[in-house]
Every structure is written in C-alpha cells, then in structure tokens.
Computed example of a mutant assay.
Amino acid sequence: MNRVVLGSTGIVSPQDAFGALPIQRISFDEAERLLRRAVDGGMSFFDTARAYSDSEEKMGRALHGLRDRVAIATKTMAKTPEDFWDDLHTSLSNLRTDHVDLYQFHCIDRVWELGDGTGMYECMVEAKRQGKINHIGVTAHKVGTAFEAVETGLYETMQFPFNYLSSPRETELVSACERKNMGFIAMKGLAGGLLMNADALMAHMACFPNALPIWGIQRLEELETWLSYIEEGQPRMSPELAAAIEADRAELAGSFCRGCGYCAPCPQGIVVNQCARMSLMVRRAPSDVWLSEAWQTEMDKIDSCTECRSCVERCPYGLDVPAVLKENLEDYRRLLARRVEAGSAESAVDGRGPA
C-alpha cells in the first residue's frame, strides 16, 4: 500500500486513515473495539473534531495507552481566541493527551492569517509554541476558500472533500498542495455514503500519492474492508474499475447532496441532509427503512418548505437546496407509487386481492 507523507508535517500514514465522525453514533464500547482494531490492523492516522459530539471522548478512551502508535488530528470551529482556547483545552481533555499532532480550523468561511486583526492564527502559533499542537491545518468545503488557504503558505495541511466525483478544479487543489509541500487530507471519500465500490475508491486514491483519505467508519465490517488493503495490497486502476467509476460519475456528478448536515437546522423541521438525497439513497443503498412510514412523514415535510433559503446560505457546496428537496420529493413519491403498484400486482397474482 502507498504510504503518504503529509507535506511538511512529516506525519506518515498508509493511504488509508480513520475518519471518526460516525463513531458518535455508536456506543463507547463499540467505538473502543473499532478504534483498537483499526490500530491493530495498521491504521495510524485518526481524525475527529470538537463538533462531532462525543467522538473525541470515545477516541480518547480507545487510544489512551496507544499514543505512540497513532497521529491524532482534531478541529475547532472557534471564531474568537477565547473559544479557540476553550476548544483546544476541551479536546486535549477528551482525547486524554497533552498534545494533538494536527490541529485544524474547521470548515472555514474565511482564511485566518497573521496580523489580520482577529488573533486566530496567532492562537495556533502560541498553541504550537506551548507544545499543545504539533502542526497547523485547515479544512474547507468551498474550493475558492481552500485555494486561498493554500496560497498563504501558513497551513501545513488542507482537508477537503475529494473522491472520483470531484471536479477538475477540486482535483487541481490536490496538485496545488503537493507543489506547496502541504499535506492533503481527503474527506468525503464516500460522497456521504453514495459511493460503495471500495476497490474503485482505493484505486482512484492511488493515482494521487499525496492524498490521505479518511474513511468515515462506523461498523466493523466497513473497517475490515479498508484494513484488507493494508494487509493484502491496494488495488490499481484497471479498465473494469475505470468503467465502474465512469458509471458512477454519469449518475452522480452534479448537484447532489453530500449529507454533511451544515445546512441544519431547518425552521420547518426538515431533515435536509437526508431528505435532499433520499432518491439516491433509495436507489444506491436500498433498504425498506427509506420507504417506511416514518421517512414518508419526514419527506412530506418538504411540502412545508417556505424557501427561506437559510439552508442555501449554509450549504458549503452552493446547492439550490429547496430545488433539490423538491426534486427528491417528486421522485420519492414516484418510487412509493411503483411499490404500491407492484404490491397490488403481486396480490392479484396470488389471489389475495388488494390489501
């Protein structure tokens, strides 16, 4: 497997790392088993954030005592120096460590710089001087903002959504980081759960030797898939995998919801980060749960959308969210109607008649 050096940080990892956002959805015991298995299986880079509810606490419990075997990255969404220090001290306590290997400004909408009057970048410098952080990074969702951060030369790593659906401009960001000797961490490698061909995902990443993917992992079977590449070798691009990638691009490229949730909360109570991609979830991750009465009720809430556009203002991908919601609702109702029709036809054939 490729080994990635994160730019000037010198942090080295297999091209296969652990994104810890999903562990906030499982118990402490499950998270501990998952994280310890990841370390035993060869993963050495673990990424979390203050914003991920109890993810840091779970990571701290699981990786305490294994500190010399792992690099830990976390993030702050602070906008003031006071909040920066509060977040950092809370993170260190949660993670049960006296330092983090990489501290990142999380989902920035502006680039903090030295002397900009905010004192934010100066906080990073001071935290590094105190030995509480080893390296300074940044995460972004908007490509223009990401390029601004790269050009400052102030940041040692860039974390940005990257997978084989990425645009040429987003792909160029990976190369720009390489030229600047800036580590590149690829988040949203699964496009919010819509990409499921692990061989294709790994083969694509192999084409970018400076990119370190942090796969969002929640279940042991998912983890074992990623660990298998460390143990058995990383797939390389082939005509078959290239064809699978092109098929996904044809279906998914464009204005689709990645499920990040930054649009929340909705004043009408719409679960935007699921409802805005429900059509794709039904088709690509089939489950009866998506067509359940509970989700039908959630989808019906889209009818109450007032188009206040608060979700549009917060969407890091610039989507016309109300339009995407309505498209998903229309398609969802078509899928429900087909299921009802199929059920009626089955009843007629077996003589039961309509339910």
Rank of each mutant, 00 (worst) to 15 (best):
D86Y: 08
L63P: 06
D98T: 07
K75T: 00
F46R: 11
K79L: 13
H99E: 07
A62P: 03
R110V: 00
S27G: 13
P81I: 09
L102K: 05
D109L: 03
D83F: 05
G42L: 04
K58Y: 07
L63K: 01
K75P: 11
T80L: 02
R50A: 06
D87Q: 06
G115A: 07
E113V: 13
D87H: 15
R33C: 00
G115E: 03
F84E: 09
D87V: 12
D86K: 15
R96W: 00
F105K: 14
A62I: 03
G117L: 07
T80K: 12
T74V: 03
F28Q: 13
Y103P: 03
M59V: 11
F84N: 07
L34S: 09
L114V: 12
R61G: 05
G119L: 12
L88V: 02
M59S: 00
V111N: 04
D68R: 11
K79Y: 09
R69I: 01
H99K: 10
D98V: 03
T48D: 00
F84K: 02
E56W: 00
H99T: 08
D54Q: 06
D87N: 15
A78N: 08
Y103C: 06
E57N: 13
R36W: 04
L95D: 13
I26N: 13
D54Y: 00
M59H: 10
D86R: 15
Q104D: 03
A49D: 04
I108L: 12
R67K: 11
G117R: 14
A31D: 04
A49Q: 07
F84I: 08
G117Q: 07
M77R: 13
H106T: 09
L34D: 04
D40K: 14
M77G: 06
I26W: 11
A73I: 01
T76P: 03
L63F: 04
T90G: 07
T118F: 04
T97F: 03
E32L: 09
L92D: 11
